[in-house]
Every structure is written in structure tokens, then in C-alpha cells.
């Protein structure tokens, strides 16, 4: 069976590989490229833990046909930290106990990153809306919402 070539940038690095017909982006990232940061939860769009950014916007990688990302820019949680230097979202999630089992965390972080890039000063309601496609079975959401609001405050403080 013929494979299709696909090229994109992943966290800033040029990436090229061959995919099977019907392969989704999540499998392609995890098995093809070896970026294990986006997780598989449901494979049907419900849980959000596979959320990645495509050209800065959140998408469900399990429902994205891999070859449609040709030429586009993909960001995953794997690219958030700079070596041991965590991204502010990651650090503040840790400080606020925004992760318990951690399975939802990669999706939460990417949804939050997309929100803060567009809206550096979100209301609590806007945060709730931004993560409304992401299910967390552990935290009860409050620590996650607090963490995103706190990160927004810190990032604004740094710019000012």
C-alpha cells in the first residue's frame, strides 16, 4: 500500500515522514516521529488530551488526517520547555497542583497556551470556555483554572 509523504514543522523543527492512508496526526506524532507528549484518550474528539496547536490554533490530533498538515506548523507539549527550563504554564501548573495523574495535562497546556497567546488577560469564564473541550477526571478543574489565570498574571507582569 502506497504511503504518502508529509512535511511540517514540529515545535520549530522541519519534519518529514511517510504516512499510511487514513493515519491520524496523533499516531503520526507518537509512532512516526516519536513525540509522545500528546496522549491518546478516546480517539473520538471527546477528551481533548491529544490537543496540539496547528498554526497556533488548538486542534484534536486524533481527528486530524495526518496528510492535511502538509506545510503547517505543529506545536506539542514536548516543545514547551527549553531543556530543564519549564514554560511558565508548566511551572505554575505544578505549583497549583494543576496535574494529578497528569493524563489530561498535555491537552490542557496546549489549550491554555492558545488562549493566552490571543488573550493575555482572560476572565475566569474565558478560561473555562478555552478548556471546555478537555476532560479532567482528577482535579475537579479548579486548580487548572487557577493555574491558567495565575500564569496569565505572571506573564503579563513580566512583559510590563
Amino acid at each position: 500500500m502506497a504511503k504518502t509523504p508529509v512535511r511540517f514543522t514540529l515545535n520549530g523543527s522541519e519534519t518529514a515522514l511517510f504516512v499510511d492512508g487514513g493515519a491520524n496526526l496523533l499516531d503520526t506524532l507518537r509512532r512516526g516521529v516519536g513525540d509522545l507528549s500528546p496522549k491518546y484518550g478516546c480517539g473520538q474528539g471527546t477528551c481533548g488530551t491529544c490537543t496540539v496547536l496547528i498554526d497556533g490554533e488548538p486542534h484534536l490530533s486524533c481527528l486530524t488526517l495526518a496528510e492535511t498538515v502538509e506545510g503547517r506548523s505543529i506545536e506539542t507539549t514536548g516543545g514547551l520547555s527549553n531543556g530543564a527550563d519549564l514554560h511558565p504554564l508548566q511551572r505554575v501548573f505544578m505549583e497549583n497542583f494543576g496535574a494529578q495523574c497528569g493524563y489530561c495535562t498535555p491537552g490542557m497546556l496546549m489549550a491554555a497556551k492558545a488562549l493566552l497567546a490571543k488573550n493575555p488577560n482572560p476572565s475566569r469564564e474565558e478560561v473555562v470556555e478555552a478548556i471546555s473541550g478537555n476532560i479532567c477526571r482528577c482535579t475537579g478543574y479548579e486548580p487548572i483554572i487557577d493555574a491558567i489565570l495565575a500564569t496569565a498574571g505572571q506573564m503579563r507582569g513580566r512583559v510590563a
Binding site: G48, P58, H59, L60, T64, A111, S132, G133, N134
Partner: peptide, 9 residues
């Protein structure tokens, strides 16, 4: 319709 990621798709 859905959450933000669904609406982008």
C-alpha cells in the same frame, strides 16, 4: 458547537 478545538475543525 463543541469546544474550541472542534470549532477550529
Amino acid at each position: 458547537v463543541g469546544g474550541p478545538a472542534v470549532r477550529n475543525m
